[in-house]
Design a binder for these strands. Structure first.
Lengths: 211, 211
DNA sequence: TACTAATGGATAGCCCGACTATCCAGCGTG
DNA sequence: CACGCTGGATAGTCGGGCTATCCATTAGTA
């Protein structure tokens, strides 16, 4: 398959495909001569993954590249690779001053919460900081989150992960498929959940206010 | 309170505050003379809301403005106002060609699903299109979502909304507080849920792969 | 009363991220 | 052998979210 065909099948313009090649999101095609390269179904597949993450997940190109680098580093084991991919999807919180009391306390709360749940989460998981930032923000807004509230969300997330999501991941298959599935699952069903939540709010609001 | 004090208390630089004033995110202060204006606690509160939506929710400035316009339009009733605010938070999907078969089918699936759940959602709720786009994307990725999958997420969202979220909204209080609470709740707990999901994935991955 | 620093208002510029446009030399098929 | 497409490189565009500069005015302070 030549680049024009790749473009036609995916709907992505040729200059954009070249951009993805430059950025390392898409592997180079197999060179058949100085001015020809051959692309295969794997490229089409990768291209669809990129567009899905960009358009539905609003994942920045730099984060997609980090995910892909995790896949292509053959030295790491599957768990590390999944972890790296997952960490790459995080959106780093605003930098905060190191000695921020409020912030340190929130971060401690998060660590205690995760420990209390018995979750096996790395000490440097970016989610810890993201959650701490969210807690600080809620406090500043005058609506501090209670532990009970947080536990509800944590358990909801774990129920979904355990019963409906991790089961889809083919751990025994090729490593790239495992990562790809994990990322798709995280991003796409994350989006779906987000949308359902907003729809549910609208529906409940209608029910309450029209009564 | 003068602008410099507003800046000091909120941590937002003065030029940025001026930018928000220009963009209509922040109401003008009360003019006390040609070159003086007085800002009150409401401004500080609004400023914190803006920063929360921007930093934690990654909500674009234009969407925040739409939310605020909904609040300030005194003519609409509370339900319409909440709806407008909610619609403003949606991230519109990529435009699709009108005659796209695949897309129309997905959109029908979404409408049927929502009707089947008995949810009271407006026919033009942007979430319908967002969900349709997500379904199309999942199909293109070769991992189509089943109705059973979607129902799990829908019910999870509704359980959270009914039992833990809508109860926090003070429908009987002033309208701006109701909208503000709804938006904060949607965005901040949405973020928390998202983070918890990623942490749960990591934890489950560790449990499965280290066994 | 003179001076200084801050204010509100306006305009223009900056930076980043995601493309998009142009150019060029070398194929390779008709 | 001509013409169109290819890969590769470089530069330009566009939108979003600020940020910098300037200016006339004026509240404090000396």
């Amino acid at each position: 398959m030549r680049i024009s065909q790749l473009s036609a099948e995916s709907g992505v313009p040729i200059p954009t495909i070249k951009y993805y090649l430059r950025e390392g999101l898409l592997p180079q095609g197999e060179q058949t001569s100085a001015t020809r390269a051959e692309y295969g179904p794997a490229h089409l597949r990768r291209l669809r993954l990129i567009r899905a993450l960009l358009e539905v997940g609003r994942v920045p190109v730099a984060a997609i590249r980090r995910v892909i680098e995790a896949v292509e580093d053959e030295r790491t084991d599957v768990h590390t690779m999944l972890g790296t991919a997952h960490y790459a999807l995080a959106s780093p919180p605003e930098p905060h001053s190191a000695g921020d009391e409020e912030w340190t306390r929130a971060r401690d709360d998060v660590d205690r919460l995760i420990a209390g749940l018995g979750w096996r989460v790395g000490p440097f998981a970016p989610g810890r900081d993201e959650l701490a930032q969210t807690l600080v923000t809620l406090e500043r807004l005058g609506m501090p989150a209670t532990d009970a509230d947080l536990l509800v969300y944590a358990r909801t997330a774990m129920d979904l992960a355990r019963d409906h999501e991790m089961g889809k991941i083919p751990f025994d298959g090729p490593r790239d498929v495992a990562v790809e599935t994990l990322v798709i699952c995280t991003v796409m069903y994350g989006k779906a959940l987000d949308v359902f939540r907003r729809l549910a709010h609208e529906s409940e609001s209608a029910r309450i206010l029209e009564a």
